[in-house]
Structures are given as C-alpha cells and as structure tokens.
Design a protein around this nucleic acid. Structure first.
Length: 460
RNA sequence: GCCGCCAUCGUCUAACGGUUAGGACGCGGCCCUUUCAAGGCUGAAAUCGGAGUUCGAUUCUCCGUGGCGGCACCA
C-alpha cells in the first residue's frame, strides 16, 4: 500500500489538513510494508517557498506524523510532465486549442450545458493551451470508499486544460501523473476534490494507468457551519503547539472528528488508532471543530501522564515559549501543584508562574480581598504561623494555617484568600499550601510583609 | 445556471429494518471545596419535511427543503 498526503505549500497546516494527514498516516501505518508519501502541490510558484514548505513539515513532525518518502515537489518534475504531455498529443488524447475561459462559457450556454469540445490547432499557435479530449459517450465513475459510487456523464464534462500555453502542467494533470508514476494506491483527501476526480481519472485512463482507491473526507466546518479555511477560523497546528496541547491528544481528538469506532470508546492510544482506524467507518457528513472538547481531552491526557514526564513536557514548553520556571529546581513540585487543574500546558503559568518571577500584583484581586474586614489580622497571624512552622512542607503548612483559621474563628477563605493575594498577587492560583511551600519560607514572609505594609498605608 | 456531495441531541458520534434512539463535550442541579480547576452523582437535550416499500423505517427508494463543493491557462 502506498498512501500519499499532498498539502498545499501555504506555510500553514490547519485542522482540516492535519486531520487528512492523520488519516493518511494511520492508513499507511496499518501494515509494515506500506509507504507514506509526502507530495507537495506547488505548481503555484508564488507561495511555494522553501520556508512555507518547511513550516508544513514542522507541523507534521510535531504531530508525530513522519513520512517515508518525499517531500516530492511538483516543480521538480517538469521533464516528466513534458514527456507525458507529448505522449498524449501523439496519441490524440490531447490537443492544442485557443479557446479562453469566456469562449468555453459561451459555448456551453449555446449547447445548454453540454461539455465543451475544442478545435485542434497546430502546436505553437499563439495563445493555445493543451486540452484533454474527453469521450462524448459513457460515464466516468468514481468509486469512493467513503462516498460510494458517483457517476459523471462524459458528455457533460469539458475538454479541460491540462497545460498552459507555455507548456506548464496544471494540477489535475500533474497529480494524476504523479499518482501513476509513484505507484500510489490510496488517495485520501478533502471532499472538495470529489468533482475533480473524474478529470484525474480521465487523465489516468489516457495515460494507461490504473486508478488508485479514493477516499474523500467531508470538510471540517466552523461553529457557524461554514467550511473552515485559513481566513475563516481554522486553527493551525502551530497554534495547537503554542497553546500547550499535546500531540497525542490532538491526534486522538482529530481522529474522532469524522470517525467513530463504536458506541462508547473515546480514548485511543495512537497504536489503537492505527489498529482500529478504517476508512469505511469515516462519516460522510461534515464535522464541526470543537475546541472545548479538545481542551477537555487534552486535560485528560495531562492527568493520565506520569508526573515526571509531565514535568519534562512542561520544561520543554516553558523553554520554547519563554516562560519562567523551566530551569528551576522547583519545577517538579510546581507540576504536582497544577496537574489536577490544567487542561493545557499554557495554564501552568497562570497557576504557579508567580513563584518564578517577581510579584505582580493584580489591583482587582487586591481590592476584592484585602478590603475585607480582618484581612490584615489574618495576614499577621498567618505570617507568625509560617515563620515558626516546622517542617516547612505541605502538611506542616496546612496544620499551621488551619490552626490560624481556628484561632480566629473564621472561615478558611478569610485567611487563605488574603494570603493567596499577598504571595501570588491574584485570587486565582494553585492551592495555598502548595503555593506557600513552592515559594519557600523566606520569599513567602517577604511578600506577606510587603502586603502588610501596603495594607497599613491604605488603612490609617 | 449546470453537475455533484451531505442531513441523528447545541457539538462530535453509536445504533444486521425491531433499542425506553446509546456514549462523549458543552449546559443545568446537587455533593466535595481555600480560589480556580478536577472529581462524584444527577437532569434537560436529536432521527429536516412529505410520500413510497415493509407486519415494522433513524436505517431502503423517490420528491422536496436546507447546507456545502466543483464547473480556471488555481491547487
């Protein structure tokens, strides 16, 4: 089995493309002798820069979807196309024609929608493009694993252009040639190509090649029901990465967008996906990308992970995104403090970032908590307790602080919230005991003192 | 305009022609609770419409409606 994935070199792999890549990859990984081929559709020279291609490759690598062959660029194969083009002219399957798009449109209007048939002119005629001769009778049948059989009447199909006046090949011709010459057996791609397929089939037939197995995936839509696209809400793989999603969670989520194994299974390891995935079970209708569900699933993966490994992932993530804490010896402790709370690696910083950088006081949080009756006294007592507690670990700190609460006869929050704001600067953070221990005794006392000072100045 | 694809809770999906139409996210309620989460229990929520086939239709057929795609010397 030879499976190919053919991204456009836009420098941007979005969710839809990522899912298509994943399905291709899963299919290719099912048997040991299968080959996953990467073919770049870069006939459009404007955007197919090396940099744009490299970004696509990076996204595939991050997703863990390695390829066996390629990336092959269309632009590198011009002599192959020229040869095939010449063969089609020689056999009479293609001919030069001077008609423009407008001419074709007019001709179709005149015939009531029948396919355009051109008039051959000599090669080299000014403005002549090469068209494929489509049979007048019969039909071109697309057999699709997902969509079933679709029939296209040949008489309604235009003799379409396969090469420009300058001899450069067009997409529908180039893919067909590549699929044939690369021995591709499975083409899994977006639904939007279904109407192109008869054209590729016609080229293949003229070339004397056997068609591959086709599978056309329904497109992914946004929350508004419109197809996802670069300019319309599509999240890129790079954004998944920088937002702190795990590739394995993204793979699991993407696999489920348009495919289901049974009535209840939601979590699939990648090995299970490879084993259980099949094109036959892919849904025929479009799916809507739901980031909330991805977040939920990512959180599940995070919590499932061994804490040493999670710490390692966090370290890499913090480094890559210039967040403090990556090289701090307290990283593992901080990981333990957040692992039940975060759903993306990105959220680590919100909950424990305070321990790795100077205090940043959020005024709103301060006003909300420190204005309350007894906040100052609670802080004074907490300070005394924390200055004396031994050992300075979570159980010890908890005992000491709960004793303060009891001594004051208040609710736990009346002590914990002022303390939280004093040491983290905000009302939202990891648990207070964990936060205190993470900060360390000295820094905790220093920050409480600073808060008390500020409080004193505010309340004469 | 022509050709084509698609249609189950808000969303992702499950259901050899026979199920109280199942699960998950999200949402509501309750519990837990030092904030935020997480977790536990629990509730509401769907077969686009109309014909036909059949003892019986979410499932098969046709029509309609709606959504989407293609109809480039783009990919």
């Amino acid at each position: 089995m030879r499976v190919r994935f053919a991204p456009s070199p836009t420098g941007y792999l979005h969710v839809g493309g990522a899912r298509t890549a994943l399905y291709n990859w899963l299919l290719a990984r099912k048997s040991a002798d299968s080959v996953f081929v990467l073919r770049i559709e870069d006939t459009d020279l404007e955007r197919s820069t090396d940099e744009a291609i490299e970004q696509i490759l990076d996204s595939l690598r991050w997703l863990g979807l390695g390829w066996d062959e390629g990336p092959l660029r269309q632009t590198e194969r011009s002599e192959r196309y020229a040869e095939r083009l010449a063969a089609l002219v020689a056999s009479g399957d293609a001919y030069w024609d001077v008609a423009t798009g407008d001419d074709v449109k007019k001709a179709k209007e005149a015939t009531g929608g029948a396919g355009y048939r051109g008039t051959p002119v000599a090669e080299g005629t000014e403005g002549a493009a090469l068209r494929l001769r489509v049979p007048d009778e019969g039909e071109t049948v697309v057999d699709d694993v997902i969509k079933g059989t679709t029939r296209f009447e040949n008489r309604l199909l235009d003799d379409f252009v396969i090469a420009r006046s300058d001899g450069s090949p067009l997409y529908n011709f180039a893919v067909a040639v590549d699929d044939l010459e690369m021995g591709i057996t499975h083409v899994v791609r977006g639904d939007d190509h279904l109407s192109n397929t008869p054209r590729q089939l016609l080229v293949l037939k003229a070339l004397g090649g056997e068609p591959p197995t086709y599978a056309h995936l329904p497109l992914l839509h946004g929350p508004d029901g419109k197809p996802l696209s670069k300019r319309h809400g599509a999240v890129s793989v790079q954004e998944f990465e920088s937002s702190g999603f795990l590739p394995e969670a993204v793979r699991n989520y993407l696999a489920l967008l348009g495919w289901g194994y049974d009535a209840t299974t939601t979590f699939f390891s990648t090995a299970e996906l490879v084993d259980k995935f099949s094109l036959e079970r892919v849904s025929r209708s479009p799916a809507v990308f739901d980031e909330q569900k991805l977040r939920w699933m990512n959180g599940q993966y995070l919590r499932e992970m061994d804490s040493a490994e999670l710490a390692e992932r966090l370290r890499e993530y913090l480094r890559a995104n210039d967040r403090p804490g990556a090289d701090d010896p307290r990283l593992e402790r901080a990981t333990l403090a957040v692992r039940e709370k975060i759903s993306t690696l990105d959220e680590f910083d919100n909950l424990v970032g305070f321990a790795f950088r100077p205090l940043e006081l959020d005024e709103k949080s301060w006003n909300k908590v420190m204005g309350k009756e007894g906040a100052g006294q609670a802080l004074v007592r907490a300070r005394e307790a924390l200055a004396a507690v031994e050992p300075f670990d979570e159980p010890g700190v908890e005992r000491a602080l709960r004793a303060v609460v009891e001594g004051l006869g208040t609710k736990a929050g009346a002590v914990f919230q002022p303390l939280r704001v004093a040491i983290t600067g905000r009302t939202v953070s990891a648990g207070v005991f964990e936060s205190v221990v993470l900060l360390g005794r000295d820094e905790t006392l220093t920050r409480i003192d600073a808060a008390l000072e500020r409080l004193g100045a505010a309340t004469p």
